[in-house]
Design a protein around this nucleic acid. Structure first.
Lengths: 165, 165
DNA sequence: AAATGTTGGTTGATGTGTCAACTCACTTCG
DNA sequence: CGAAGTGAGTTGACACATCAACCAACATTT
């Protein structure tokens, strides 16, 4: 468990921060998720879809657009939209006779409007305000760097013939 | 969507950082998880259990200890250990005739030793080194603050009679 | 000693995410 | 025109997480 330079292992400092981060991530996520579920009967996934739909001008989007916005796999999207439709939160409308549009229902809009303030309030209280503006800005910048690094890694590390990249 | 002080909403700055963080978190997690799965046939959950077992002196722990270390629900632990046993990664040994011990098998130890360097290497390359020491230290400190805030919130916000807190 | 409670652990039902295979409308190329 | 291809979306099988109910061994109480 040393800190030899060309070994992949983390130093004690690094490991401590990394593990704090992992624990925070899990604790925050399950806390937010549980409250959303208890108080409003919505999962984090439901919330994400509803936010995207409610932010669009028309309240309707194609599944593909939702996929771009959320970065979900298409099959996850399909499954989840079916479940949400069954619960009356959205509706699939076959306008294009090929690519159905996903529309927010009354009930869906009511749900998102009811829970958004409480949810955002908790995000602010437990995360944004705890970080504070400086650390928050730094986190945003570092996050963008990590996203870029992963993107670059995807391209450099995958010769085009290798499957599944 | 303004920034009225006593409203819960996030400012544009805050929202940008928060969303970058969310995207980073998801991208990193799915990237690490997918590679672990592809290259070694292990899920992140498998990895977590195996790391804890392999770090213990004896290579064996009680399920309860694993639960404390990982913060999993006990039923999740039970289900997952059953699956891992079926795959030969661990073994449940009924020494105490009541609380079975979870032991690393040969195969389990081989699996964790084979994949740990690659996994840690990716964490370093894509996260730790991208953050760099300063931002990494800051993230660790801020994470601890968030964990503390959530802990305090749990206590202050739940009158003892309310169910499920 | 019998009744009760506590606690670590299991089980089954249900909702969710992922992968691979598939459908179907439309394109493109022969 | 017809055959192969493309791309959005669906489906089914499986792994997984969560919840509530349960079990079984120990502790406590009376």
């Amino acid at each position: 468990m040393g800190a030899v330079a060309d070994e992949p292992w983390l130093t004690d400092e690094e490991q401590k921060s990394w593990r704090s981060y992992l624990l925070m991530r899990r604790t925050l996520e399950s806390h937010l998720e549980r409250h959303l579920q208890r108080e409003f009967g919505l999962s984090g996934s439901d919330f994400e879809i509803l936010v995207n739909l409610s932010e669009s001008e028309t309240g309707r989007m194609r599944a593909f657009e939702l996929g771009e916005a959320t970065q979900w796999e298409k099959s996850r999207m399909s499954h989840h939209l079916s479940r949400m439709e069954k619960r009356g939160l959205i509706r699939k409308e076959a306008c294009d006779a090929r690519y159905p549009e996903i529309a927010l229902t009354e009930q869906g809009r009511a749900a998102i409007e009811a829970c958004a303030p409480a949810h955002v309030g908790r995000v602010r209280e437990l995360f944004v305000d705890v970080f504070g503006p400086d650390r928050m800005a730094m986190l945003g910048a570092a996050s963008d760097d990590v996203i870029a690094a992963i993107g670059k890694h995807q391209h450099t590390n995958c010769p085009p013939d290798v499957s599944g990249c």
